[in-house]
Amino acid sequence: MLHRRPPCDGPLFIVLNLRSGEHDGQDPVQAIEAVLREAGRPYELLKVERPDALKSTAARAVERARERQGVVVAAGGDGTINSVAQAVLDTGLPFGVLPQGTFNYFGRTHHIPLDAGEATRALLGAQPEPTQVGLVNDRIFLVNASLGLYPKLLEDREVFKRQYGRTRWVALWSGLVTLMRERRQLLLRIEHEGEARLVRTSTLFIGNNSLQLEQVGIPEAESLDQGRLVALSVKPVSSWAMLGLVLRGAVGRLGDADHVVSFDFRRMEVSPVVAPGRRARLKVATDGETTWMAAPLSFRVAPQPLWLLKPPRPQDGEAGPAAKTASSAA
């Protein structure tokens, strides 16, 4: 039943994270409501002002959508979209996105405009399409999951944003600072395709977003269309060498680097190598949000899709609103 295309003409229940991203002086609430009032579409706006209220607000939106055969919509960055999608996935309800974050990989991948008003108009004409979801144990990820250096980058980025503002330049600067001072390594036991091996790495990155993987030059990006995920690990290198890898990624050549190993898979188990008697836990980031998880970690594709409301794709050679904004956001 969950694999049947759900109806998408019911009322919209919009979970709006007021703390997400940059708005360039635009009030996203006014922009969203103006479009919906003009269209005459019933909606309910559920505003989130504190991060700890996001999960309960998403659950309330799902309950309301079930009662009225409606649509659950996430308005925020990739972390907000992840949290709301986590509540929606097992229900089979249609799921809409109004991107409001800093990088917005998920919205850009699916050609959803970044402007709040344009995204709302696109949502009204969108149709539900099955979309692949990654799982690490019982948590979903739509863009990526990671261990090691990447979660540290995300935590430091949040500290910088609280001090200096939620902009892309602040995010990039904080990333450079972390790269130059972080030297910890992980020793992991990785098992997939019936083989197990020990890997020492500063970071293990699992991708589920073709745009992000293609931008940095990972050749396995096309495997996502075949129901697989893509793993990327970095061999131990100096801080300066790591910076060089970042620059390679910026020009789309990370997959050519000698210190980078990438491969696609359907299922993979990961455990840290720890002393006997010690509790095996790993800090995991999923779509920008970090949490501690008990090992082993099982990475796989969710058995059911997320029914994402996608606007029509631009014709070849035609740059739609999302594509135009994406080029300036990259």
Rank of each mutant, 00 (worst) to 15 (best):
G207L: 01
N208Q: 09
N208M: 13
S210N: 06
Q212L: 03
E214G: 07
E214M: 05
Q215V: 00
V216S: 05
V216R: 03
G217E: 01
G217I: 03
G217T: 09
G217Y: 06
P219S: 15
P219D: 00
P219N: 09
A221F: 10
A221Y: 01
E222M: 02
E222Y: 07
E222W: 00
S223A: 13
S223R: 13
S223W: 06
S223P: 07
L224E: 11
D225W: 08
D225H: 15
D225E: 10
G227E: 04
R228Q: 15
R228A: 04
L229E: 01
V230R: 04
L232Y: 10
S233A: 12
S233M: 03
S233G: 09
V234R: 06
P236Y: 10
P236S: 14
P236A: 03
V237G: 12
V237A: 13
V237P: 02
S238T: 12
S239R: 11
S239T: 10
W240V: 13
W240S: 11
W240T: 14
M242L: 15
L243C: 11
L243P: 02
L243M: 15
G244D: 03
G244V: 07
G244S: 14
L245S: 13
L245K: 05
V246M: 06
V246N: 01
V246R: 02
V246P: 08
V246D: 04
V246H: 03
R248P: 04
R248V: 09
G249K: 02
G249S: 12
G249D: 03
A250M: 14
A250R: 14
A250K: 08
V251Q: 08
V251S: 05
V251I: 15
V251K: 10
G252A: 04
R253H: 00
R253S: 07
R253F: 12
R253A: 03
R253K: 14
D256A: 12
H259W: 08
V261H: 11
V261M: 12
S262H: 11
S262F: 10
F263V: 08
F263Y: 08
R266M: 01
R266I: 12
R267I: 09
R267K: 10
R267H: 15
M268F: 08
M268R: 00
E269H: 12
E269C: 07
E269L: 07
